Amino acid sequence: MGRKLAESLKTLLNETFEGPGNGGSYYTDSKPNTGIFGTLEGLNAEDASLSIHGSTIAAHADHTRYYLWVVRTMISGVEFEKDWDASWTISQVDETKWAEIKEGLQSEYHSLLAKIDTIDLEEWLTNVNAIIAHSAYHLGALRQMIKELESEK
Rank of each mutant, 00 (worst) to 15 (best):
L113H: 09
Y67E: 05
G19P: 09
Y137P: 00
S8L: 15
S76T: 07
D83T: 09
K82L: 09
D120Y: 01
E122V: 05
R143Q: 15
Q92H: 12
R3F: 09
D85M: 04
L125G: 00
Y67I: 04
A86E: 12
V78E: 15
A141H: 02
T118D: 14
K10T: 05
T89N: 12
K82C: 03
K4M: 11
Q144H: 11
G104A: 10
L13M: 15
S135K: 04
L43V: 02
L113W: 09
D62F: 03
H134C: 07
R143P: 00
L13E: 05
E81N: 13
G19A: 12
G35S: 09
E148S: 09
P32L: 10
N127I: 00
K82Q: 14
L113S: 01
A86F: 06
M74P: 00
N14M: 13
E15V: 09
G38L: 08
S76D: 11
L139G: 00
I52H: 07
T64N: 10
N22Q: 15
T126M: 10
T11F: 12
F17A: 05
T89C: 03
K102N: 14
A114Y: 07
P32S: 10
I90K: 04
E79Q: 14
W84Q: 10
G23A: 12
S25N: 14
D120L: 03
A130S: 15
K4T: 10
V78P: 00
K10E: 13
K115V: 02
Y66G: 01
W69Y: 13
S25H: 08
N127Y: 14
P20Q: 09
L112K: 01
A45Y: 02
L9K: 06
L40M: 09
I36R: 06
T73M: 11
H110G: 01
A141Q: 13
E7H: 12
N22I: 14
A136W: 08
T64I: 08
T126I: 15
G42P: 06
K102V: 07
V71P: 00
A45S: 14
N129M: 12
D85G: 12
E108H: 13
G42V: 01
I75N: 04
F80T: 06
L13N: 10
A130I: 02
L149Q: 06
A99L: 06
T126W: 09
E18M: 15
A130G: 14
L112P: 02
N33Q: 14
M145A: 12
D47M: 11
A99H: 08
